[in-house]
Design a protein around this nucleic acid. Structure first.
Length: 852
RNA sequence: GCCCGUGUGGCGGAACUGGUAGACGCGGCAGACUCAAAAUCUGCUCUGGGAAACUGGGUGGGGGUUCGAGUCCCUCCACGGGCACCA
């Protein structure tokens, strides 16, 4: 073997060996404890990016570390393979989406394999494969049977560029999350999944996910948006119908000075038929949509309907009903009562339209007889005033009293609403899982029988026509009704790709089964012990997956609720951005730095403007191709750098200097271990050394510390500790027999500690130092306690909290000794300067503080 | 606007439950090897004063609790993220 570190040679060598020995296949009948580690599967865009490298390296460290600790590890990989880019490629380059996708999968798999990931590829799945989506269709049919999937007409967010419907969460600032096009409103019949059936469960159970980041728990809680309040009925003067209003502040009911309904409220639409002003106002609101409202800074506008509502608690009071642009049809009941004194938005509206402001809650530090709200609404708690039978009660008591009264009047009840709404999954696209339903003129909507599955996508489709290729297809949609046998039509919609990713983690457990998954496999592997992915999926994917698991439970597929026991969300990979003089983004390899560290264009020498570091993205061209890095430095170097500099949950700044540093370090380890291997003998029995030998202690401390760090996902600290150990080993004199023996022992531990992070070089060095077994099969080292506890400690001595010196003490020293030694230090005595000592604080093994 | 997070040398970041701030790395400086460079190795590197011993300051700003605060509390500022006419 070459004396120089040659990553390309050893990496391909070991990747071949691992593959040949099936090293990473998970056993479905092992006696060991099972451990399922999973990273979010990628969309097969064709090339991996640094985000993937970071994500999959972390997962690989966990997989290999757990394996070394005796676990039977499941670490699979697959492809989130349906979706729009495949269709775009079809349109732009006349490649069939299937061909494009499978080509991409092939090249991305090669790239991932080149990273040396300990993945069980025998379980690989692609969501676009009929063997995957036929099970998804079966699950959909079961959801339908169990009333968890339903169809209804609804206003949808229509993306005019992608020609498809988007879920609310896919609309960002009024624009499509993918296309960026302004979203229009359109009414269509759509399939929905009843996620709101589980609102409460999803909300409550999330607090029990102790190994999830609190941030993600909170984001999901906010997303579900539970609020408790009351539904109140306001009769309308001279009308049969009542106005139903949801409020979280029923206590302020006597402060109501107007009602407001949404422009999309049924009553509003009814009124619009005979009223042009209202008609104009509605179209105004619909037109402006979200975007204009944002631009105008959310001005509150309304139109008086001329109708009046009767106050539910006092029929002598009539309050005007407005149509207001800030009332949402989708939330609550689409109607509110305005209490200007205690809601800033209502107050703004009241001041604009000259409506009365009735103060009904007085803060505890104000005088109830003269407190009144002027320009700032009071939203805190206090005592009720001007409120009839509620006067004198606090807010909470008043809420209860009002609800009680409303119930007895038959005009209301306590209720809870959620921000979360049902999940619309219909997409007017070709490259997705077909919805296995048939529309029959006689029988209505008829499910495709399970034995007919899969409903496969047709091959010969035309992407040149606008709209849904499946609907445009001449033959595919034509079928026979499974019920009456007469001619009928297939549903031409496909499912949102978030459906595909809501159960793939279950499929991995039984990747080749005839049913979606087998119960005994789920029993072995689920829930996922450690899930790792980007925080950008904190809400959608993770919430949908939690819902899916519960829905599957309800349909009798499985018997647990939460799919992911542990969740880790890693930060993004960032890079500086570069622009040339004309404002064009530049790739990092097009930029060089001169000796003054100013940036120039490689080709023209033109000065380059260096921008702040941002998340790597193709549009800003601040990307570094992992393949180039692997070619230049090797996969181990790329992996090590991904783990070393930043804490994994934070963003990582990609730098050329950083990657070179990682490479230099691995080269140094290579030389160090080679030196040690050459100059020492492999004696298998581990020697014991004198308890205070600082070198042997350093080794055991490193083993102990790295183990703790890996358990806690502190990869960057683990790397720092391993480097410290390397420094220690480098300082040993191999000509001295005892030190050489320590060095050999230390080198072995060093290789073991490194092995989850940089597996190829670890395997090679493990062999070079005389070991026969693959390091992947070798047990994790355990630190010997006796080398960890200190017999002597160095303790700082402070005078008035300021460090003035250090003293050495036995670990179990008493107070007197500490005081005595502290007061014999010259630097300490100088600081005391003969002054009177008031007190001496001694914390054993930590600190001595002398107060003067 | 509301909710959450972060703020430590030139840079990325360490610091267990309040107990010696700056581990480890990057960069920089000096030196060794070399005809020279690269690579490698050695040393120094928070900052002001000082030749040095030593000494003053220092974890976004201000205040507080404590013998002792990067860590806890209050307040302000900056940056990042989530939600947003949510009734």
């Amino acid at each position: 073997m070459d004396d120089r570190y040659n990553p390309q040679a050893i990496e391909t060598k070991w990747q071949k060996k691992w593959k040949e020995s099936n090293a990473f296949s998970a056993s479905d009948n092992s006696d060991h404890s099972d451990y399922y580690v999973l990273e979010m599967f990628p969309y097969p865009s064709g090339r991996i990016h640094m985000g993937h490298v970071r994500n999959y390296t972390m997962g690989d460290v966990v997989a290999r570390y757990k394996k070394a600790n005796g676990f039977n590890v499941l670490h699979p990989m697959g492809w989130d393979a349906f979706g729009l880019p495949a269709e775009n490629a079809a349109i732009e380059r006349s490649i069939h989406p299937r061909e494009w996708t499978y080509d991409n999968i092939k090249s991305m798999r090669e790239q991932l394999e080149r990273l040396g990931l300990a993945i069980d590829w025998s379980r690989e799945v692609a969501t676009c494969h009929p063997e995957y989506y036929k099970h998804q269709q079966q699950i959909f049919l079961d959801f339908y049977k169990n009333n968890l999937a339903y169809r209804r007409k609804s206003w949808v967010n229509w993306d005019p560029v992608d020609n498809t419907v988007l879920a609310n969460e896919q609309v960002i600032e009024g624009r499509g999350w993918r296309s960026g096009a302004l979203i229009e409103k359109k009414e269509l019949s759509q399939w929905f999944l009843r996620i709101t059936d589980f609102s409460d469960e999803l909300l409550e159970d999330i607090t029990q996910l102790s190994r999830w980041p609190e941030k993600v728990q909170l984001m999901q809680q906010n997303w579900i948006g539970k609020s408790e309040g009351a539904m109140v009925t306001f009769p309308i003067c001279d009308q049969k119908e009542n106005l139903e209003i949801f409020t979280t502040r029923p206590d302020t009911l006597f402060g109501a000075s107007f009602c407001a309904i949404s422009p999309n409220h049924p009553l509003c639409i009814e009124l619009a038929a005979e009223n042009e002003i209202i008609r104009n106002f509605i179209s105004d609101c619909n037109q402006s949509g979200t975007s204009l409202v944002d631009i105008e800074g959310g001005e509150k506008k309304g139109v008086d309907t001329g109708l009046s509502a009767i106050h539910p608690l006092d029929s002598n009071i009539q309050i005007p009903i407005y149509i207001a642009n800030f009332v949402l049809m989708e939330y609550g009941s689409g109607a509110i009562f305005g209490c200007p004194a205690h809601d800033q938005r209502d107050l703004d509206f009241a001041l604009k339209y000259n409506l009365p402001v009735i103060t009904v809650v007085c803060p505890s530090d104000k005088n109830p007889s003269n407190f009144s709200v002027k320009n700032t609404a009071f939203t805190g708690s206090g005592t009720l005033i001007n409120s009839g039978f509620l006067n004198g009660l606090n807010v909470d008591k008043a809420k209860e009293a009002v609800v009680k009264e409303l119930i007895s009047l038959g005009l209301g009840h306590a209720t809870t609403t959620y921000r979360l709404r049902d999940w619309g999954i219909s997409r007017q696209r070709y490259w997705g899982c077909p919805i296995p339903m048939v529309h029959c003129d006689r029988c209505g909507i008829v499910p495709v029988p399970i034995s007919y599955l899969p409903v496969t996508l047709p091959d010969n489709v035309d992407f040149d026509k606008p709209g849904n290729p499946l609907a445009n297809h001449t033959k595919w949609k034509k079928t026979y009704c499974p019920k009456c046998g007469k001619k009928a039509q297939r549903d031409t919609d496909t499912m949102d790709t978030f459906v595909d990713s809501s159960w793939y983690f279950l499929r991995f457990c039984s990747a080749r089964a005839d049913t979606p998954f087998l119960e005994e496999d789920l029993k072995r592997w689920m829930p996922v012990a450690q899930y790792i992915g980007g925080v950008e999926h904190a809400i959608l994917h993770l919430l949908y997956s939690r819902f899916f698991t519960r829905a599957l439970k309800r349909c009798g597929y499985l018997n647990f609720d939460e799919p992911f026991n542990g969740l880790f969300t890693q930060g993004m990979v960032c890079h500086e951005t570069y622009k040339d003089q004309s404002g064009q983004w530049m790739y990092p390899e097009e930029v060089e730095f001169d000796s003054n560290n100013s940036a120039k264009s490689v080709s023209t020498g033109e000065k380059i403007i260096v921008g702040r570091s941002e998340s790597m993205s193709k549009s800003k061209r601040n990307v570094v191709d992992p393949e180039m890095i692997i070619k230049g430095y090797g996969a181990d170097t790329a992996r090590l750098f991904m783990l070393s500099d930043s804490p994994p949950e934070r963003d990582l700044e990609w730098t050329e200097a950083g990657i070179r540093g990682a490479w230099r370090y691995l080269s140094a380890v290579w030389r160090l271990v080679l030196d040690i291997a050459k100059s020492t003998q492999n004696n298998s029995n581990v020697e014991t050394f004198e308890i205070n030998n600082k070198h042997i202690r350093a080794i055991h401390c490193a083993v102990h510390g790295v183990t703790n760090d890996l358990e806690k996902f502190h990869f960057n600290r683990a790397v720092a500790r391993i480097r410290e150990l390397t420094n220690t080993l480098q300082s040993l004199d191999l000509d001295i027999k005892e030190e050489a023996n320590i060095a050999r022992q230390g080198a072995k531990n060093l290789i073991q500690l490194l092995s989850p992070m940089v597996p190829h070089i670890a395997e090679e060095l493990w062999t070079l130092i005389g070991e026969k077994e693959s390091i992947y099969e070798t047990s994790w080292p355990v630190a010997d306690e006796k080398y960890l506890t200190n017999t002597n400690v160095t303790v700082g001595v402070q005078v008035n909290g300021k460090k003035r010196g250090v003293i050495n003490l036995p670990e179990n020293h008493d107070e007197e000794l500490a005081k005595k030694l502290a007061l014999s230090e010259t630097s300490v005595l100088r600081a005391i300067d003969g002054k009177n000592i008031k007190k001496i604080i001694v914390v054993q093994g930590k600190i001595v503080n002398i107060v003067i």
